[in-house]
């Protein structure tokens, strides 16, 4: 397992967890056909939390966060995001989706639009922001992810790491209150992982509520306030990072940690 070193000093001044509940998942189950992918998930995420979800592939961790903005539909239980329950009501779904940003493993930038257009598309069409303002916001976030000079290029002309940073900026332009990351660094070459992780750390330092499916344990140790370990569609263990890595309780967790950190 390639492991990007987190070298920088992390500013924890804004990383405060509040009492306000951001996401509440209660007794949630999901099946793909007859396959029970998520089993009785209970999870409460408070505003300002930075959660890393780890686990072997096929453990349901991606499906879990995809349920949070309804890219997947859960079949029983309850998901409440920012006080809005995810039901089959389209208005609620639209509301949740515009509050929650999502970053994908394969970036999913729109290849026919320039970087700037990728960033301004949703603000203009969903939030109805005037174009000029949307452009300004987009440039602000491009500066933040440190690639303002690429604004007029097309996604195909950028490296993988740059594309993923654009994808993060694209989500940020919608001013989300919660960010979901679905294995954001898995499709990247080793030398590009660090630049994406740095962007994510900066986001954490500003107090963003984040749920992150990743295998980057260095990131988990440095940034997360909670690590969740999933296996076979259920939450097996959750703890604060130091305890999680140094004093795992469950046998499954120990085995998993020895496999990814062992050598």
């Amino acid at each position: 397992m390639s492991e990007a070193k987190i070298e920088r000093k992390i500013d924890r001044s804004h990383m405060t967890v509040t009492d306000e509940v951001a996401i509440q998942i209660t007794a949630m189950n999901k099946w793909f056909g007859t396959f029970h992918v998520l089993r009785d998930i209970n999870l409460t995420v408070n505003r300002g939390e930075r959660i890393v979800i780890a686990g072997p592939s096929g453990s349901g961790k991606s499906t879990l966060i995809r349920c949070i903005n309804r890219l997947e539909e859960h079949q029983s239980g309850q998901i409440i995001v920012d006080g809005t329950e995810l039901t089959s009501d389209l208005k609620n779904i639209d509301k949740v989706r515009s509050e929650v940003g999502m970053v994908f493993q394969h970036f999913n930038l729109f290849p026919h639009l320039t970087i700037l257009e990728n960033l301004t598309l949703a603000p203009i069409w969903v939030r109805k922001v005037p174009k000029k303002e949307a452009d300004e916001v987009a440039m602000y976030y491009l500066e933040k992810v440190k690639i303002p000079e690429q604004a007029l290029k097309y996604p195909g002309q950028l490296s993988g790491g740059q594309q993923q940073r654009v994808a993060i900026a694209r989500s940020l332009c919608m001013k989300p209150r919660i960010m979901l990351f679905d294995e954001p660094t898995s499709a990247l070459d080793p030398e590009m992982i660090k630049e994406v992780l740095d962007t994510m750390i900066e986001l954490a330092e500003e107090g963003m509520t984040m749920i992150c499916v990743t295998h980057e344990m260095g990131f988990a140790q440095a940034v997360a306030n909670r690590v969740i370990f999933m296996d076979q569609g259920q939450i097996v263990e959750q703890n604060e990072p130091y305890e999680f890595f140094n004093n795992p309780q469950s046998e499954r967790t120990k085995l998993f940690l020895s496999q990814i950190l062992g050598h």
Binding site: D19, E20, V21, Q24, T44, N46, I80, G83, T84, E85
Partner: peptide, 8 residues
Amino acid sequence: MAIASEPP
């Protein structure tokens, strides 16, 4: 941790 409000 706070309890989420019941959905309407």
